[in-house]
C-alpha cells in the first residue's frame, strides 16, 4: 500500500491511518491532502490515528505541517484517537502540536468540524444578506 486513502464527507476530509507510517508514506499523504483540500474546498480535515502505535519526530512534524498547510487553505485539522503511549512519546519529543485541534474519538472530532462548518455557513449567509441589502 503506497497511498493512504482520503475520504470526502460533506465539507470535511477524513483520513484514517491504518498502517505504520514510514517517511515516504507520510510525505505522500501530506502532498495528497494538500491537493485534495485545494480541489474540494474542504473546511475541515479529520485525521484518525487510533491505529497508529509508533510515532517518531518525523511523523509528529508531518502532522504539524499538515495542520499549518490546511490552515493556510482555510481548513481546520482535527487529530483524533491518539493513544496514550503516542501522546507521551510526542510530549517527550517536545512536539506539543499546538496548532492542531484534538479529540478523543472520531465522533467528537466530527462534532468539532461540524460546528466549524456551521459557523462558516452562518458567516456566508450573513455576508449574502449584507450584499442583498
Amino acid at each position: 500500500m503506497d497511498r493512504i486513502p482520503i475520504l470526502k464527507l460533506g465539507g470535511a476530509l477524513i483520513v484514517t491511518i491504518q498502517v505504520d507510517m514510514h517517511d515516504r508514506l507520510a510525505l505522500a499523504l501530506e502532498e495528497d491532502l494538500t491537493a485534495k483540500i485545494a480541489s474540494t474546498g474542504a473546511r475541515g480535515v479529520l485525521i484518525d490515528i487510533s491505529a497508529l502505535e509508533i510515532v517518531d519526530s518525523f511523523i509528529g512534524r508531518m502532522l504539524d505541517n499538515i495542520a499549518a498547510v490546511s490552515r493556510v487553505l482555510d481548513a481546520d485539522t482535527v487529530v483524533v484517537g491518539m493513544r496514550p503511549a503516542v501522546a507521551i512519546t510526542l510530549v517527550e519529543l517536545g512536539l506539543e502540536l499546538t496548532g492542531i485541534k484534538t479529540a478523543l474519538n472520531i465522533e467528537r472530532g466530527m462534532a468539532l468540524i461540524r460546528s466549524r462548518l456551521d459557523e462558516s455557513k452562518d458567516e456566508a449567509r450573513s455576508a449574502r444578506a449584507r450584499r442583498e441589502d
Partner: peptide
C-alpha cells in the same frame, strides 16, 4: 500537553 493531544 499529553492530555490535550488525546483530546481532553
Amino acid at each position: 500537553a499529553a492530555a490535550r493531544l488525546m483530546g481532553a
